[in-house]
Lab assay of single mutants.
Amino acid sequence: MTEYKLVVVGAGGVGKSALTIQLIQNHFVDEYDPTIEDSYRKQVVIDGETCLLDILDTAGQEEYSAMRDQYMRTGEGFLCVFAINNTKSFEDIHHYREQIKRVKDSEDVPMVLVGNKCDLPSRTVDTKQAQDLARSYGIPFIETSAKTRQGVDDAFYTLVREIRKHKEKMSKDGKKKKKKSKTKCVIM
């Protein structure tokens, strides 16, 4: 069974824990209790493949930012979460993405942009803004509501699919490099 290491990042209060708990335990946590770091595991079937999701729910508070490099190193894919009623959390996505790329030393890291709290009427981040940002990053965008469960499975499952595509691409690139290195030079 394939294991996928997913990391949920975003500013404090955007609903990272609520999304994760909704996926794992099928219930909505409405009281806000700032996370330092929590880890969850769940076995699911995605596109006919049974897999184990190892999900790291991270601290959004700035005082825990020193811990970010460590979990970013171990993560295979990242859910970059903002709240649709919090423009600052949307603007912060850029910083999370840049930090992930720096730590992973790669421009090509599996990510999904997630606009959470889409059940709320007080939207300050337009869907088109988020779609445009995701398009500019070359990553999928999904709106979710941890409260109603809308888009929750889709967000995590899409990230797994992005990781699969990335692994497939990397193995193809690896095979191309191996083929090239088999060419021999004969000096007579």
Rank of each mutant, 00 (worst) to 15 (best):
E107M: 10
R97C: 15
P110I: 02
L120S: 13
Q70F: 05
N116Y: 00
V112E: 00
K117T: 14
D92F: 07
V114Q: 01
I93Y: 04
R68Q: 15
Y71C: 14
Y96W: 12
I100T: 01
A66E: 11
R123G: 14
Q70N: 09
S65M: 07
R102V: 04
D105R: 07
F78C: 03
R102S: 06
D126H: 07
N86G: 11
I84P: 15
M72E: 08
P121W: 05
V112T: 02
R123L: 11
T124N: 11
N86W: 01
R68C: 12
V81E: 05
F82A: 12
C80W: 03
L120E: 13
S106G: 13
R73H: 13
I100D: 01
N116T: 15
C80D: 01
V103T: 08
L79R: 00
D69E: 09
D105A: 08
T74Q: 14
M67Y: 07
Y64C: 10
N86R: 03
V125T: 10
M72I: 11
L120P: 09
I100F: 04
G77P: 00
K104T: 13
A66C: 11
D105P: 06
E76H: 10
R97M: 15
A66K: 05
V114W: 00
I84N: 15
F78R: 00
S89Y: 01
I100M: 05
A66M: 10
L113Y: 04
D69G: 04
V112M: 04
S122F: 06
I84E: 15
Q70T: 07
R68N: 15
V112S: 00
A66P: 11
H95A: 14
Q70V: 05
G115E: 04
E63V: 03
V125Q: 11
V109T: 05
S65E: 12
G75A: 15
A66G: 12
N86Q: 05
E98L: 02
V125E: 12
S122T: 11
G77V: 12
R102A: 08
Y64V: 09
P110Q: 02
R68F: 06
V114R: 00
V114G: 01
H95W: 10
E91C: 03
T74N: 11
R97G: 06
M67R: 09
E107G: 09
C118V: 09
S89A: 09
S122D: 14
T74L: 07
I84G: 15
L79A: 03
R123V: 12
R102E: 09
D126T: 07
M111N: 00
G115N: 04
Y71W: 06
R123Q: 13
L79W: 01
L120R: 07
L113M: 10
D69N: 06
I84K: 13
G75L: 04
S122L: 06
D126E: 09
E76K: 03
V112A: 02
R68D: 15
P110M: 02
V125N: 10
Y96V: 15
R97P: 03
N86L: 01
C80K: 01
Y96L: 15
M72L: 10
I93K: 00
D119C: 05
P121M: 12
I84R: 10
V109Y: 05
V125Y: 12
D119Q: 04
V114A: 03
M111A: 01
V109K: 02
K104I: 10
Q99G: 04
V81M: 14
V103E: 11
E107S: 10
V114F: 03
D119P: 03
Q70Y: 07
P121E: 13
F78N: 00
T124G: 12
P110S: 02
F78G: 00
G75N: 04
L113S: 01
Y71L: 14
V114H: 00
G77E: 00
L113T: 02
D108R: 05
L113Q: 01
V112P: 00
D119F: 03
D105H: 07
V103H: 08
N116R: 00
L79N: 00
C80S: 02
N116M: 15
K117S: 13
T74D: 15
G115F: 14
L113W: 11
P121Q: 11
Y71D: 15
G115L: 12
E76R: 03
V114S: 01
G77M: 10
C80H: 03
G115S: 07
A66L: 07
T87E: 15
K117A: 14
R102I: 05
M67L: 06
P110T: 02
V103R: 05
N86K: 04
A83H: 09
T124E: 13
V125A: 11
G115Q: 05
H95L: 05
G77Q: 01
V125W: 10
A66I: 08
L120V: 11
S122K: 08
E107F: 11
V125R: 08
V112R: 00
D108I: 04
V112Q: 00
L79I: 14
E76C: 14
L79V: 08
D126K: 05
V81T: 07
M111D: 00
N86I: 02
Q70S: 11
E98S: 04
V81H: 03
G115H: 05
S106M: 13
R102N: 05
D119N: 06
N86Y: 02
R73V: 08
Q70E: 12
Y64G: 14
Y71P: 11
F78P: 00
M111C: 05
M72V: 09
S65L: 04
Q70W: 03
K117W: 15
D92G: 05
A66N: 10
E76I: 13
D108K: 04
D92A: 12
D105K: 08
F82R: 00
K104W: 13
D119S: 05
R73S: 13
Y64F: 08
A83I: 01
E98N: 04
V81N: 03
M72Q: 06
G75F: 05
N116W: 00
D69C: 02
D69T: 04
C118G: 10
R68M: 10
R102T: 09
L113H: 01
D105T: 04
T74H: 13
D105M: 11
A83T: 06
D105V: 04
